[in-house]
């Protein structure tokens, strides 16, 4: 296994580039929560494992590693994705936001406050994913995106049914669903999603 070491990320990659080589490893510049991390990664490394094992952000959780639970949800350029099915090399160039990057300095976002106040979790393992997903989902709704329960031909109105459908990619075995839905609706009602 040859390891292609490039002098420094900044020189090798420029602003948004990817090291193009035939190697099985890459040097990438990962933007996480506004900080640039220069990493040499095995191309097999998922964004999830890179965040957890390389960047040290363990707030993002692994529930299934196959896109089937949503625990690993993060935002890539503001859109929610499952980080377990995204390769770290493929995340290069995107602005990745994890649960650690949501609140400002010690301040909880409204969505985080509502989760605490309304008990939107029990064990907390799905919580980072639920919160990142909710932030992404509210932005999608703000852009007018429909969901599977939006009547065709009409514009969506965020009610409990819409929230449940849109949040269905985040499983919660503790069964905190009703409080999560309430927390999301309360946040939406406060009208300040990202604080």
């Amino acid at each position: 296994m040859a390891f292609h070491r490039l002098s420094t990320c900044a020189v090798a990659l420029g602003e948004k580039g990817v090291a193009l080589n035939e190697d099985t490893h890459s040097e990438i510049l990962l933007h996480v929560n506004g900080v640039k991390h220069c990493l040499s990664v095995d191309n097999r490394t998922t964004l999830l494992d890179a965040l957890r094992e390389r960047v040290g952000h363990t707030g993002t959780k692994k529930g299934c590693d196959h896109g089937q639970c949503g625990a690993c949800t993060v935002l890539c350029d503001g859109r929610r994705v499952v980080s377990c099915l995204m390769l770290a090399v493929a995340a290069e160039g995107a602005e990745v936001t994890t649960v650690e990057g949501l609140g400002g300095d010690g301040e909880l976002l409204p969505i985080q406050q509502e989760f605490v106040r309304l008990d939107g979790f029990q064990c907390g393992y799905c919580t980072s994913g639920q919160i990142c997903s909710a932030v992404g989902m509210l932005a999608e709704y703000a852009e007018g995106w429909p969901s599977a329960v939006t009547a065709p031909g009409s514009e969506p109105v965020l009610d409990a049914v819409e929230v449940r459908e849109r949040m269905s990619g985040n499983l919660c075995r503790c069964g905190a669903y009703p409080s999560i839905v309430r927390a999301v609706l309360e946040t939406a009602a406060r009208g300040e999603v990202t604080g």
């Binding site: 896109g67 859109r79 994705v81 499952v82 992404g136 969901s147 269905s168 990619g169 985040n170």
Partner: peptide, 9 residues
């Protein structure tokens, strides 16, 4: 199909 996260990818 799938979920909001997966459809974004």
């Amino acid at each position: 199909g799938a979920s909001g996260q997966l459809r974004n990818m």
